[in-house]
Amino acid sequence: MSGVTRKIALGACLTALALALSWAESLIPLTLFIPIPGFRLGLANIVTLFALYFLGRRSAWSVLTARCLLGALLAGNLTALIFSFSGGAVAMAVMTLLYRNRRLSVYGVSIAGAAGHNVGQIAAALLVLGGWAPLAYLPPLLALSVLTGALTGSVSAALFRFAPAERLFSPV
């Protein structure tokens, strides 16, 4: 399989996986314990991280975009797209900046990504809903992102060990 075809095929698989994880985590009623609307574990980020580390920036962005569009299509509403993409894009931007940094491991990148995701979503909420109410959720979400980021980071780290070492940090 040529490199490009391999990337496309992998990208498609990863998109499907990300969608499945997204749906699966929505089944867990986290909001019962932590009553913040829209609070999630962010398991789909594991896929994004994998794409970033092993396939490069472009593939990672493609997988993210595809996942957001399909997710919104499946959910059947436009606001879902705005919220998931705004969160995902900021997370991706942050992670893209940090992932090659030797001083940070996948844990740190994941935490930064989680924080970025929440910031992006709150920004979208401010725009879509109007008013300043969404800002009230920023402090707890930021604090929680350290936890969820660490969680997805540790799952990612465990999974990455199974991937071929030489594929890590493949060129853009």
């Binding site: 975009t65 569009l69 399909l70 919104a72 299509l73 959910a75 059947g76 509403n77 436009l78 606001t79 879902a80 797209l81």
Partner: peptide
């Protein structure tokens, strides 16, 4: 493609 997706997503169910 993106536009097509957006249109479909928007049509699939309108906003409440």
């Amino acid at each position: 493609c993106a536009a097509a997706f957006l249109l479909l997503a928007g049509c699939a169910s309108g906003e409440k």
